[in-house]
Design a protein around this nucleic acid. Sequence first.
DNA 1: CCCATAACTAAACAATTGTTTAGTTATTTT
DNA 2: AAAATAACTAAACAATTGTTTAGTTATGGG
Lengths: 201, 201
Amino acid sequence: MLNDCLVLLCIRKIMARKKEYREEEVIEKAMNLFWQYGYETTSMQMLEKEMGINKFSIYSSFGNKNGVFLESIKCYIQKLNQLINKLKSSANGIEGIKQYFYDFIDFSKETEFGKGCLVTNTANEIREDADEKIKEVLSKFTEEVKQVFTDSLRQDETKNKATIEQQADFLIISMFGLSSATRVFSKRQLDNYIENVFKNV
Amino acid sequence: MLNDCLVLLCIRKIMARKKEYREEEVIEKAMNLFWQYGYETTSMQMLEKEMGINKFSIYSSFGNKNGVFLESIKCYIQKLNQLINKLKSSANGIEGIKQYFYDFIDFSKETEFGKGCLVTNTANEIREDADEKIKEVLSKFTEEVKQVFTDSLRQDETKNKATIEQQADFLIISMFGLSSATRVFSKRQLDNYIENVFKNV
DNA sequence: CCCATAACTAAACAATTGTTTAGTTATTTT
DNA sequence: AAAATAACTAAACAATTGTTTAGTTATGGG
């Protein structure tokens, strides 16, 4: 009876057997799979093997495949936030944004060649009928990056509001394009692309 | 015996029953499905329904799903070639390329919103282990477009060879990015992107 | 120590995938 | 008209998908 109350109130659950894995650890492995293969191509079987836990455990921890994917994207964004925070704390204006572009290329090619960006890859893969939570995370992230770009552009006081808004839009699409392009084009071409994007911003 | 020879020499096959469909017609319908949904999400069931012919007929005409896809991409490129030929025959240099960018946006949003570009969508979807023929068609097309860009840039005689090569690379990635972006960003943002891309080329 | 129960293993689930095949229909050639 | 055969219909195929479930193991509180 007392136990029931505790459970209902979610103060403390009776833990019978300990989990043999940490969710933050296994989700990072899942994230790497989704990053490399995309949502559809990554099967529960692959996830099972890579995460090192049984399907039952996956489902009890994350609900379903989409739940694993959602947490994977959040995990990915958390990693990307390191680069974004660097930009946030930079006072170099447009040069800081340019550095972020270069940082991203290094980030996306950390392990091997051309995995692109999990956020952009997902935006390219999904259609309108995709899961709402996923779509929300994606658009929220895009909006957030655009805001950071805007803040950096504001550091140049000679630019008026309209110019800043316009250039932030230009840069967010450039970043989106660059993310996709990392999967296809060479490092030399990507560097060249960045240089041209920032030639006159 | 004589018939056998004819068959073997492929001069004339004995046609017993006429096909009730034209392959060029049904492949265009398939192309529209792949364009909208991508390769994986488009099932043989969907193709059967949209193309209006039986699975047997699909397999006897195109071999397998990948065969239908390959022909669909070729069909798509054939359509895109109208825009490319317009650029080819233009003498407006960089302005002609800019017009091609705008033409492409109209083309990709002809029917509804944001189907992107079938070539770019495919490049975003496939991995390294994808079918070789598919990969070849994609890279060949990219190379061809880059060549047309190069030719247009050459119309400006003040530009040296290195500049032209560099700008052609920049523009092909910009086009690639734009293609992906049409599925996500608004018309206003895309126009703004194009204007900024061509601000200093 | 024992009971309740969370976490585990492994099998089964229904649905869908791309592909093939057996049997029927229609057309051309002899 | 009849034989030959390409093109049709429709069912079956094996494999894989995401998800669930029955049964076992291990660990907590009383």
